[in-house]
């Protein structure tokens, strides 16, 4: 079970990194100011998780 959890955990970090990539791409592409700010704020928990801080 511990190995399975480790695999899932690694996948989770990969998914988090992918979400960060998508958000950054969305910030670059969007023409809407509110969306740009919203995507920026959304980055925070994903980055903190990838860095294993929170």
């Amino acid at each position: 079970m511990a190995i399975l959890n480790s695999i899932i955990s690694v996948c989770y970090y990969l998914i988090s990194a992918f979400v960060v990539f998508v958000l950054v791409k969305s910030i670059i592409k969007t023409k809407n100011v509110q969306d740009a700010i919203l995507y920026s704020v959304m980055l925070m928990p994903f980055i903190l998780r990838i860095l294993r801080i929170k």
């Binding site: 910030i27 700010i37 704020v41 980055l43 925070m44």
Partner: peptide, 14 residues
């Protein structure tokens, strides 16, 4: 400019 400022503020909060 708005994008860069918002990213900078988020970076500071982060």
């Amino acid at each position: 400019i708005v994008k860069l400022v918002s990213l900078a503020l988020v970076a500071v909060a982060l």
